[in-house]
């Protein structure tokens, strides 16, 4: 039972990260019908910039700078996607974001090298200091509470943004009907860029938060991106609520699979992809969504 709780805690905190990445996917997909294969790289940018800065400055400085860096990369990518958006086929756009993804990764590797970087926990003096709580027999790291807390905060903020602000509503309008949105005077291009910036911002926040728990690496983006996508599809692309639930579910399943099938521990990373394949094949509109997918 203790082991179960422990794995549950790990699963939830991992799942939160997947959930944030999934929201990013959904934001961009809603605005452009493009799946941004570079979504995971935003997480990596956040993590790596924070890791690089934390060596010199405090978290209070590093955090916002990392987010800004992520947003900047997002804006550039958004601009690049805008160029061929109207005339190119889906395949071309997919290839383009894949290219962007490995380009970003390559540049990061060039600047920061291959090896992982240590990132101190948000609270606590150093990595080694044991900042933990004991809940129901499970050891809960302070960082894991940070992860969960920040996720909740982001989810609420995103929700409020889309529901209550004019810009958020304009973005939703663009997603539902770009032509209509243009007719009422919304700058659709600006909204698309904004959706990229938002997705990138969310991603890099997730990156900074997660980096403290694990080593920050240039290659961390790919797996996180794919798992986030898995969550997004599981929850139904374009559905924020579904993505969040699915992300956390995915994290938990991934953690608990070890308990059910001990020999699977080597293949833990494959679990998410097997789930992804199954979901794509059996129910591409998403398990948690009632909408019909335009697969």
């Amino acid at each position: 039972m203790e082991q179960f709780n422990q794995l549950l805690v790990t699963g939830i905190s991992n799942g939160c990260i997947y959930a944030i990445v999934a929201i990013g996917f959904s934001i961009i997909y809603a605005g452009t019908q493009v799946i941004n294969f570079a979504q995971g790289e935003f997480v990596m940018i956040g993590a790596m910039v924070a890791a690089a800065l934390l060596a010199k400055v405090s978290l209070l400085v590093a955090f916002p700078v990392a987010i800004l860096a992520g947003c900047l990369v997002g804006a550039i990518l958004g601009l690049c996607v805008l160029v061929p958006l109207k005339r190119a086929a889906v395949v071309s756009l997919v290839i383009m974001t894949v290219g962007a993804s490995i380009l970003i990764r390559g540049l990061a590797q060039l600047f920061w090298g291959e090896e992982g970087k240590n990132v101190p926990y948000f609270t606590g003096v150093s990595v080694n200091e044991d900042h933990t709580f004991h809940i129901a027999g499970a050891i809960v790291g302070a960082q894991q509470i940070w992860v969960v807390g920040i996720t909740i905060l982001l989810v609420i903020a995103t929700h409020c943004f889309f529901k209550y602000t004019l810009t958020g509503r304009a973005m939703r309008a663009c997603a539902l009907n770009p032509t209509g949105a243009r007719l009422v005077g919304i700058n659709v291009h600006k909204m698309i860029i904004l959706s990229f910036v938002m997705a990138a911002g969310l991603g890099s926040i997730a990156g900074v938060t997660v980096a403290a728990g694990i080593y920050a690496r240039c290659t961390m983006g790919a797996a996180l991106g794919l798992k986030g996508f898995c969550a997004a599809v599981l929850g139904g692309l374009g559905s924020y609520g579904g993505g969040i639930v699915a992300g956390i579910l995915l994290g938990v399943v991934e953690a608990l699979i070890v308990l059910v099938i001990p020999s699977m521990s080597d293949y833990r990373d494959a679990v998410a992809f097997v789930i992804l394949l199954l979901v794509l094949l059996l129910k591409p509109e998403g398990i948690l969504s009632r909408k019909k997918a335009v697969a």
């Binding site: 019908q33 889906v90 894949v98 794919l226 992809f273 097997v274 992804l276 794509l280 094949l281 697969a295």
Partner: peptide, 28 residues
């Protein structure tokens, strides 16, 4: 026979997932 029922983005992700699974199998 299964994956090719998907289109566009979904097909890309499906084939990608398959590729990653096989790669994991090779290394594990």
């Amino acid at each position: 026979a299964q994956v090719l029922r998907l289109k566009g983005n979904y097909l890309a992700m499906g084939t990608l997932a398959f590729g990653v699974i096989v790669e994991i199998m090779f290394s594990k």
